[in-house]
Amino acid sequence: MDPVPLQRLQDLQAGSDAGTALAFFDSLPPVQVPELYGSWRGTELPTGHPLDGLLEPLGWHGKRFDGAEEAFPLVFSESGGGVFNVNPSLVPLPVVLRFGPMLRKRELLASARPFLRVARTRRPGARLRMTEYRGVSSATMIYDALPVLDVFRRVDADTVLGAMDLRGVRLPFFFVLRRD
Rank of each mutant, 00 (worst) to 15 (best):
D2L: 04
P3V: 13
P3M: 10
V4K: 10
P5E: 09
R8E: 13
R8P: 02
L9M: 03
L9R: 00
D11C: 03
L12D: 04
Q13I: 02
G15D: 12
G15Y: 06
A18I: 04
G19I: 00
A21Q: 06
A23M: 02
F24I: 01
F24Q: 03
F25V: 01
F25T: 01
D26K: 01
S27D: 14
L28Q: 01
P29M: 04
P29D: 05
P30M: 00
P30Y: 02
V31S: 12
V31P: 07
V33R: 07
L36N: 04
Y37H: 10
S39C: 06
W40T: 03
W40I: 03
R41H: 14
G42D: 04
E44I: 00
L45A: 05
H49F: 06
P50M: 12
L51V: 14
L55R: 11
L58T: 10
W60H: 08
W60T: 12
G62H: 11
G62F: 06
R64S: 14
R64W: 05
D66A: 15
G67H: 03
G67F: 02
E70A: 15
A71C: 15
F72Y: 15
P73R: 01
F76L: 05
V83Y: 12
N85W: 12
P88I: 07
L90A: 14
L97A: 05
F99N: 09
G100R: 02
P101R: 09
M102E: 14
K105R: 15
L108Y: 13
A112T: 06
R113A: 15
R113K: 15
P114V: 07
P114W: 11
R117Y: 15
V118W: 12
V118S: 14
A119N: 08
R120Y: 13
R120T: 10
T121W: 11
P124A: 06
P124N: 04
R127Y: 11
L128I: 13
T131G: 08
R134Q: 06
V136D: 03
I142N: 03
L146W: 08
L146K: 11
L146C: 02
L146A: 08
P147M: 10
D150C: 04
F152S: 09
R153A: 01
R154H: 00
G162C: 05
A163I: 09
P172K: 13
P172E: 13
F173C: 07
F174W: 09
F175A: 03
F175R: 01
F175G: 02
V176Y: 00
D180E: 14
